[in-house]
Design a binder for these strands. Structure first.
Length: 486
RNA sequence: UCCUGAGUAGCUCAGCCGGUUAGAGCAUCUGACUGUUAAUCAGAGGGUCGCUGGUUCGAGCCCAGCCUCAGGAGCCA
C-alpha cells in the first residue's frame, strides 16, 4: 500500500497502514481515539483498523497546557506529524506530532472506559462503547472476516445468495417459539364473533411472525438454482438463558440440489475449514491477542479444566484433522461403554437408544473421546424434524449435527425427504399442517430430486474462532430475554 | 423456565458472631518527574450497601417478596 495514495483519498492514513509502512520521515495525518496518555508525552492512539496502537509523541514543553489537559482517554483527535522510527522500545514507528486537534473531548470523570481491566459483564452493559476495547475490536474484526469468507466460499462455488423472507406466515416448521409481527393496537385488537383475535384484519391478512429459519424457502430456490445459501438474521422467542443462545442471531443456510448427506457433510466441513483459515490469515494480530486473553483467563481455572492447546493451536488443529464422522447409534455405544457412564458420572446416564444426547454426552464425545470436531449422523426420527429423509430401517433419518469443542452443536442439517408420500406421512404423524405448507409440498410434486442442506449458527462460529465464552460477546448488540438495550 | 451463586465507591472486590465514623486495589483529580509502554512516586475527593417490606434497642450482615446479573440445565444454531 502506498501511503501517499491513501492520504490523498481519505485525508488521513489509517493506523494499520502506518504501522506496516516501510517509509519513514514522511508527513502523515492520523485520526483516532486516545487509549492512554502517558508521561504527559506519549499518546497511544487507536482507530480500529488494527488491534495495535500507534504512539504519538507530543512535544509537551512547546504545547499549550490547556490542550494537553484535553488529551484524555477516549477523546477523538486528529494529528499531523512526521512518521519516524521509534526512539523507545515496544514499537517500530511513531508519529512526532506537529499539530494536534481535539475533534471530540471525553470527560475522564465520566467516561466509563478507563485504562484498566474491565469485566466482560461490565462491558456488556456498555455495549455502545465496548468496541473501543482491544478485546471487542479484535472480535468484531474477526467476525467481519468470517462473514466475508462465508460469501467468498459460496460465491467461488457458484452458489446463489438468496434473500429469504424475514417476515413469514408459517408457524409450522417446529424450530421454536416465534415473535409475532402485527400492526394491531395491542390494547384493543379486532376480534371475531367468537372472541378470537381477527388476524384477517391485520396488515398481512393473517398471523405472521419473524422467521425462525429460511430453510423451507431456501429449498424452493435450490429446486431451480441448484445451489443457494442464505445468510441473514433469525429470531427465536425461546426463553433461553445460556452462553450459546440469542433471541436474534445470524444463520447461514445452504441448500443444494442433487446432494446426498455425505456431499452435505463434505461441504459443511470444507466451509468451516475455509473460514477458519481465512481468519488465521487475515486476523493474525487479533487472534494472537485473543489467544493470550484466553490463556490469561484459563490461568484462573483449576488445572484439570484448562485446555492444553492455545486458541491458535486449536484453530490450526481443526484445519489439520478430518472431523470424526459416526452415526448416532455408534455414538450411543461409545457412551454406554464410557468410563463416566459406567462410574455413573453422567447426570443423565445412557439408558438406551432413541433419546436425544445431553450436552454432557456431546462434550464427552468431542472433548474427551475424539478430541476433535465430530459429525453425528442418522439420528432416531422421533427426535428430528419432519423434513429429514427417512432411512430404510424406518427408525432413523439422514440427519447430521456437527459438534465443536466448547460450543456443542454448530451445524445442524440433513438430506431432505424428497418423496411426497413419505413426507406427507411424516407430517401427519408429527401434526404438521400440510395445507399451510402446500407450496413446500409442491416441490415434491413437480420435479422432486434428492437434495440436502444445513444451518450454521454464525455467532457460534465466531465464538469458536475468537475463543470467547459467551455468545452475547460476539454480536454487537445482543438480544436475549429481558435485554434489547441499544 | 428450572437449579446454583452474586448485587457494597466509576470498575474489581473485602467487610468477623447483628454493634460506634463502611475499607482496599485500580480508575479519576492535584502535585512531582519527564523516552513512557495499563509509566512511576506522594496526596486528595468519591457510598441511597439492588428495590420494597419485616424482625431487632440497633441491619451492609437475619427473614420474606421482587428486580437484575453470572454459571449450569432444557429449547437449539
Amino acid at each position: 500500500m502506498r501511503l501517499e495514495i491513501l492520504y490523498y483519498m481519505s485525508k488521513r492514513t489509517k493506523i494499520k497502514a502506518l504501522l506496516e509502512s516501510e517509509q519513514t520521515h514522511i508527513e502523515v495525518t492520523v485520526k483516532g481515539w486516545i487509549r492512554t496518555f502517558r508521561n504527559n508525552q506519549f499518546i497511544a492512539l487507536n482507530d480500529g483498523s488494527t488491534n495495535n496502537n500507534i504512539q504519538i509523541v507530543v512535544d509537551f514543553e512547546n504545547t499549550d497546557p490547556t490542550l494537553l489537559k484535553r488529551l484524555t482517554t477516549g477523546a477523538a483527535i486528529s494529528v499531523v506529524g512526521e512518521l519516524v522510527a521509534s526512539l523507545g522500545k515496544g514499537q517500530k514507528v511513531e508519529v512526532k506530532a506537529s499539530q494536534i486537534e481535539i475533534l471530540g473531548d471525553s470527560d475522564p470523570e465520566k467516561y466509563p472506559l478507563q485504562p484498566k481491566k474491565h469485566s466482560l459483564e461490565f462491558l456488556r452493559e456498555i455495549a455502545h462503547l465496548r468496541f473501543r476495547t482491544n478485546t471487542f475490536g479484535a472480535i468484531f474484526r474477526v467476525r467481519n472476516t468470517l462473514s466475508y469468507a462465508i460469501h467468498t466460499f459460496f460465491q467461488d462455488r457458484g452458489f446463489v445468495y438468496l434473500h429469504t423472507p424475514i417476515i413469514t406466515a408459517s408457524d409450522a416448521e417446529g424450530a421454536g417459539e416465534t415473535f409475532h409481527v402485527t400492526n394491531f393496537d395491542l390494547v384493543n385488537p379486532p376480534k371475531t364473533e367468537t372472541g378470537e383475535i381477527d388476524f384477517k384484519q391485520d396488515f398481512f391478512g393473517r398471523a405472521t411472525n419473524l422467521t425462525v429459519s429460511g430453510q423451507l424457502e431456501g429449498e424452493l430456490g435450490a429446486m431451480a438454482l441448484s445451489d443457494i445459501y442464505t445468510f441473514g438474521p433469525t429470531f427465536r422467542a425461546e426463553n433461553s438463558n445460556t452462553t450459546r443462545h440469542l433471541a436474534e442471531f445470524w444463520m447461514i443456510e445452504p441448500e443444494m440440489a442433487f446432494y446426498d448427506l455425505v456431499d452435505n457433510m463434505d461441504l459443511a466441513e470444507a466451509l468451516l475449514k475455509f473460514v477458519i483459515k481465512e481468519a488465521l490469515a487475515k486476523n493474525a494480530d487479533d487472534l494472537e491477542f485473543l489467544s493470550q486473553r484466553l490463556a490469561e483467563e484459563e490461568k484462573q481455572k483449576p488445572q484439570n479444566e484448562r485446555s492444553d492447546l492455545s486458541l491458535i493451536d486449536k484453530l490450526q488443529f481443526c484445519l489439520d484433522n478430518d472431523f470424526q464422522r459416526l452415526t448416532y447409534t455408534e455414538a450411543i455405544e461409545i457412551l454406554k461403554e464410557s468410563t463416566p457412564n459406567k462410574k455413573k458420572k453422567f447426570q443423565y446416564p445412557i439408558e438406551g437408544w432413541g433419546t436425544d444426547l445431553q450436552s454432557e454426552h456431546e462434550r464427552y464425545l468431542v472433548e474427551k473421546h475424539f478430541k476433535k470436531p465430530v459429525i453425528l449422523t442418522d439420528y432416531p426420527k422421533q427426535i428430528k424434524a419432519f423434513y429429514m429423509r427417512q432411512n430404510d430401517d424406518e427408525q432413523t433419518v439422514r440427519a447430521m449435527d456437527i459438534l465443536f469443542p466448547g460450543i456443542g452443536e454448530i451445524v445442524g442439517g440433513s438430506q431432505r425427504e424428497e418423496r411426497l408420500e413419505k413426507l406427507e406421512q411424516r407430517m401427519d404423524e408429527m401434526g404438521i399442517p400440510k395445507e399451510e405448507l402446500w407450496w413446500y409440498l409442491d416441490t415434491r410434486r413437480f420435479g422432486a430430486c434428492p437434495h440436502a442442506g444445513f444451518g450454521l449458527g454464525f455467532e457460534r462460529l465466531v465464538l469458536f474462532v475468537t475463543g470467547m465464552g459467551n455468545i452475547r460477546d460476539v454480536i454487537p448488540f445482543p438480544r436475549f430475554p429481558k435485554n434489547a438495550e441499544f
